[in-house]
Design a protein around this nucleic acid. Structure first.
Lengths: 121, 121, 121, 121
DNA sequence: GTGGTCTAGACCACA
DNA sequence: GTGGTCTAGACCACA
């Protein structure tokens, strides 16, 4: 269920966050489901436990998962995702749209790219 | 003509690139126009000449400007902007659109954000 | 009489302690009353007996209950609750009040929050 | 300006966050001021750079400071502190007030403790 | 020089 | 077993 692209320039912990959100969006991970433990996932993916931990702690702060020390991490209710994380994602979209424009990308092309990103998979 | 926002999370060299592209788009900088010298711009903006140098080297690599030893840097023909820079900008747009989706932003909202980024200023 | 919230960030053994104190405060558990056995409570709540054991040991150390080998655990006289547990609770209150202040919470707001916590239920 | 209590049970990175908020509250650190670099502070305090980094990244996510890679970290405008951090501090205060009550602390005593936490220093 | 990511591994509290 | 904190240290991008 989890995999990482070690060659990607996207940090591993960010790949893990994105993947978790994908699994939640797809309904594969539902509220209350247990996440793999930090150590087991680290072992499976061949990365350091600290890297997994960083991803999990990030997700907890964003309200995506919640953690009970000694028991594990669990998927939160959908509603609990932090406003600030959403705002952040929107700002990044704004900025990259503006930059694309500077490189001569037309609004039609940009809109198409966004559409395709939403239809992906 | 040039200004930077020192508080911005956008790296200074990227702000300089963006600003140059804006000036070209707006017709204020035209093909063949001379760019300010690295040292004079560094002085005006109060930043390290290395930072300006980095921006200029980046832009030369991307085909936005060209440099003639001993004479200075000049704006390229519009057509020579590197395909790879454009592809890079498109990739960033794709990635941020995808991430926005992961955080629950709807396609309608994302499209609106892009539209506004293109109508800005 | 006992219930736990498995999703809460509050450790289970702490929830059990809190609940016991609530029952004592409310007069439902009085000095000398027998506590449920570790195993029966673990079975009822569906948690590991070790967790219940931990809560009971903690409460014994704090003077809230006492254990008679072979007979079970019983509620102590109210007077025997450890000074150190009370001091600990006070320290936590102090610390969190101070932190709230650091985040800009006003003294009026903080006082109101405390007042409501005391009027709860 | 910075010091840590290595014997405290409060994690070092949390002590650093609290101290920074104190310095901001006291007006010693103002918006735009440069924070000590991760490595210099680590050296001064004799702790690992990763620990400082964790504190800084936490504070950046909470909107207390902002970071420009290659240039350093700077104190944010007061307004930018995240709502969710404040909500978190309030929840902790609520919880500890309730626990104090369970240990027999009176509302008068609790109110006094809060008052003193706000008048400290 | 400055922050960002990551590995390797220790020790702790909690279940 | 499970997460939380921390040290020691490497390598990278950016200024």
């Amino acid at each position: 269920m989890y995999m990482i692209d070690i060659k990607s320039r996207v940090p591993i912990y960010e790949q893990l966050k994105n993947r978790t959100l994908e699994l939640i969006m797809a309904g594969i991970l539902a509220s209350g489901d247990k996440m793999p433990s930090v150590r087991s996932l680290a072992g499976d993916l061949g990365v350091n436990p600290n890297t997994i931990q960083k991803a999990y702690q990030d997700m907890e702060k964003e309200g995506i998962i919640y953690t009970v020390a000694g028991r594990g991490s669990f998927v939160s209710e959908n509603q609990t995702i932090n406003e600030s994380s959403i705002r952040n994602a929107i700002e990044k979209l704004e900025k990259s749209a503006y930059e694309a424009r500077l490189y001569g990308v037309t609004i039609e092309k940009a809109t198409l790219i966004v559409k395709q990103a939403f239809e992906r998979e």
